[in-house]
Design a protein around this nucleic acid. Structure first.
Length: 261
DNA sequence: GTCCAGGTTTTTA
DNA sequence: TAAAAACATGGA
């Protein structure tokens, strides 16, 4: 199945991932921890059909096997707001990112802006991430983070989030947060496990589940999305967006911010 | 110089 | 219980 409207730019620039670089038509993306990091350079004009046949990792990363056309049709039928939001950037896919990288990145994202989040994460990787055989630094794994001091994290610009990131890394290492358990847990239980760590709140938990575990029903409520709900869906539940609420959320988020298309 | 950023925790009333 | 303040940092 091919989603004719799939867009690399829209998917990368909608605020769900932070490790990518744009150069003209070329998008270079990094994904994964330490020496397991993967890197690809791909053009927005690429023949995706043949490209992804030869790149299964990235086929999964860009979620090429989900029927987004069907999901979008349902959203568009919900009313003018969803119609506008979807049509603003109809090529958005929810990426399949590394769970730890996603969790740690969104802990860093709190009270922060996307430009600076990207900068901090890049610095974190270059300084502390172990490299793959091509010399590309990966996102520092939980184990690697655990071996760092709070001071070292602050040197990468994390500020007050340093302790939160250390808390989170330790929780993963000692299995208080288990990715295996999270994969199979009900949403409420998964959120509960994540938010038991000091520094992880409901918003970060939902982003982690949506972008790192492909839980498409998760609906992160940040400042922008609270504004959207108050303004366009007053006194309404996010349940109305159904099993793919997370996709609706991503369209609304990107649309209200006026991000790149 | 002031304000704000894909929040969360701590303090205060 | 609910609202306000604190938290580091850099860019607008």
């Amino acid at each position: 199945m091919i989603d004719e409207e799939f867009s690399i730019r829209q998917s990368l620039c909608s605020g769900q991932c932070f490790r990518f670089v744009n150069n003209g038509n070329i998008w270079t993306v990094y994904s994964g921890t330490d020496e397991k990091v993967q890197c690809i350079s791909i053009s927005e004009n690429e023949d995706f059909k043949s490209f992804f046949v030869n790149h299964p990792y990235w086929r999964n990363y860009f979620d090429m096997d989900t029927d987004y056309a069907l999901i979008r049709r349902n959203f568009v039928s919900m009313g003018k707001v969803m119609e506008d939001a979807v049509n603003y950037a109809p090529g958005i896919h929810i990426l399949n990112q590394d769970p730890w990288e996603t969790l740690c990145s969104f802990v860093i994202s709190q009270n922060n802006n996307i430009k600076r989040i990207k900068k901090i994460i890049e610095k974190l990787c270059v300084r502390y991430g172990r490299k793959n055989t091509d010399g590309i630094p990966g996102f520092p794994s939980a184990q690697t983070i655990c071996e760092l001091s709070e001071t070292q994290l602050k040197e990468a610009g994390l500020g007050f989030r340093s302790t939160y990131v250390l808390n989170t890394a330790n929780a993963v290492i000692n299995n208080e947060i288990s990715f295996e358990v999270l994969k199979n847990a009900k949403k409420e239980e998964a959120v509960k496990m994540l938010t038991s760590v000091k520094g992880i709140g409901p918003k970060v938990a939902n982003c982690t589940l949506l972008f790192g575990f492909h839980r498409l029903d998760c609906f992160p409520l940040d400042t922008w999305m609270k504004k959207v709900m108050n303004e366009y869906f007053p006194n309404q539940s996010t349940e109305q967006f159904g099993d793919y609420a997370g996709v609706a959320q991503q369209h609304l988020f990107h649309w209200i911010r006026g991000g790149e298309t």
